[in-house]
């Protein structure tokens, strides 16, 4: 029985089946790859100034209207280390590590956003503080 329907497929049909199967398989892999690790995006206005994986520790300095804001990616989280803003609220906010977490240095116009899938679920939609 199997042989009969296989015999009806031409070489082109088989290639087509293989190609489509491969495309379907890849379509499952691509989003999985995008969500494998959390990413940090630093934005200012409509521009994205910096993107990095939270898996790669590093120290970074970015410039805003007031001067340099220095931040650190370490242990799967980002935290602001120093900033030229007057009240240093961005430093006091601590670390951001979960997808959807936000930090901001408002006077220096920098927004730190965690995107992608983090290891732990955030468990909430919004944070009141």
């Amino acid at each position: 029985m199997k042989r009969i329907w296989l015999q009806r497929l031409t070489a082109f049909d088989r290639k087509l089946v293989l190609l489509l199967s491969a495309l379907v398989f890849l379509s499952f892999l691509v989003p999985l790859r995008q969500e494998a690790g959390a990413r940090l995006l630093v934005e200012s206005g409509d521009k994205t100034l910096f993107v990095a994986s939270l898996d790669q520790p590093q120290l970074v300095e970015l410039s805003g209207p007031l001067g340099l804001t220095r931040f650190e990616i370490k242990d799967g989280a980002v935290r602001v280390l120093s900033s030229p803003c007057p009240n240093k609220i961005c430093i006091g906010l601590g670390a951001a590590r979960h997808s959807g977490d936000l930090l901001a240095c408002v006077p220096n116009r920098l927004v730190f956003r965690i995107a992608g899938k983090s290891a732990e679920g955030q468990g909430y939609d919004l944070l009141s503080r």
Partner: peptide, 18 residues
């Protein structure tokens, strides 16, 4: 329902409740 987390006032990064 939306899940609204409340920041712990003394433990940075920890939640008081949801």
């Amino acid at each position: 329902p939306w899940r609204i987390a409340i920041q712990h006032p003394r433990k940075t990064g920890e939640l008081l409740t949801v």
